[in-house]
């Protein structure tokens, strides 16, 4: 089942929870969404208007993708939600509280990994906890668990330069998961890897999302990737960005990955988004 909401109803709660999470989530968690974006605009110092009056709701426990052309302001929006960039206008509410800076309920996976080259995989993955003053043995135990969860067991004592781009991104993911935030933001986490690895990562991500039961905000500019991993896709238009369209996706995620990629709904949605974008480009 695929639902397309017009952009105007962006603030409306989704009618139903995505099936994959159905069992574990209390029905009351959804109404306003865990992250509320209200009238956010951002104009950079040089006069570049990146975002223009964006309003959005991110439902709890779901993976929402921001999909849009390069330079449309996806990273900017994510960093505003993360509290790393101040908006020119508008406000962000996370769990009902106004965002004024980074907070413990949010964590970030950076587009450029942002790993410390002088620290091992283990220390990098545990770094969020280290900054929070968690005792060494405790934080390393947690980090080890997440290093294993992202498939890097055995690499704990390697340094980032000894890893491939994809493996480095997994360290960044382990670090973001280890602090146990409610909202995990990922900025194009798979853009640095080849197509094969990317598909495997997408499958791993689905498994992690199901295990962790957190809210994921995911930035990508791949339509296929967005449709494959998301419960909901927010299509952003060219700069200055506005919400063009919101698409709810409900694919049977528990089966064989190839079956999902051949599922008529999957193919229809990819085609549908592509047609919409093409229409927009022409």
């Amino acid at each position: 089942m695929i639902t397309t909401l017009p952009a105007g109803s962006a603030g409306m709660p989704p009618s139903a929870h995505p099936g994959r999470f159905g069992d574990g989530i209390p029905a009351a968690a959804a109404p306003d969404g865990i992250v509320e974006v209200r009238g956010i605009s951002k104009t950079y110092g040089g006069g570049v208007e990146a975002l223009n009056n964006i309003s959005l709701t991110f439902p709890e426990g779901a993976l929402t993708s921001l999909l849009g052309p390069s330079g449309c302001g996806k990273t900017t929006l994510l960093k505003i939600i993360a509290g790393l960039v101040a908006p020119t206008a508008g406000e962000i509410l996370v769990k009902g509280r106004r965002v004024t800076g980074p907070g413990p309920e949010r964590s970030f996976v950076f587009q450029d990994f942002a790993l410390m080259p002088w620290a091992t995989v283990l220390r990098n993955a545990a770094f969020g906890l280290e900054l929070r003053g968690v005792a060494r043995s405790e934080r390393e135990a947690v980090a080890e668990r997440y290093i294993e969860a992202v498939g890097l067991k055995g690499f704990e004592h390697k340094y980032p330069h000894e890893l491939s781009g994809g493996m480095r991104q997994r360290v960044g993911l382990a670090r973001a998961l280890a602090v146990n935030a409610d909202v995990v933001m990922m900025d194009e986490p798979f853009s640095a890897v080849d197509e094969q690895t990317r598909r495997r990562f997408q499958e791993d991500l689905l498994r992690l999302v199901a295990q962790e039961r957190k809210t994921f905000l995911f930035v990508t500019h791949s339509i296929e990737e967005a449709v494959y991993v998301s419960n909901r896709i927010v299509l952003l238009s060219r700069r200055p960005s506005r919400v063009q369209r919101i698409i709810e996706i409900d694919l049977p995620r528990d089966g064989d990955p190839d079956r999902i990629r051949r599922h008529p709904d999957y193919l229809d949605t990819v085609e549908d988004i592509w047609q919409g974008l093409r229409h927009y480009v022409e």
């Binding site: 509290g83 790393l84 800076g101 980074p102 964590s107 950076f110 942002a114 280290e130 900054l131 929070r132």
Partner: peptide, 19 residues
């Protein structure tokens, strides 16, 4: 980007300088 990472994981100014 590393400083931004430190900020996002709630590092204090002193921690970011030292670590």
């Amino acid at each position: 980007s590393l400083i931004e990472m430190g900020t996002s994981f709630l590092g204090t100014r002193a921690q970011i300088i030292r670590k």
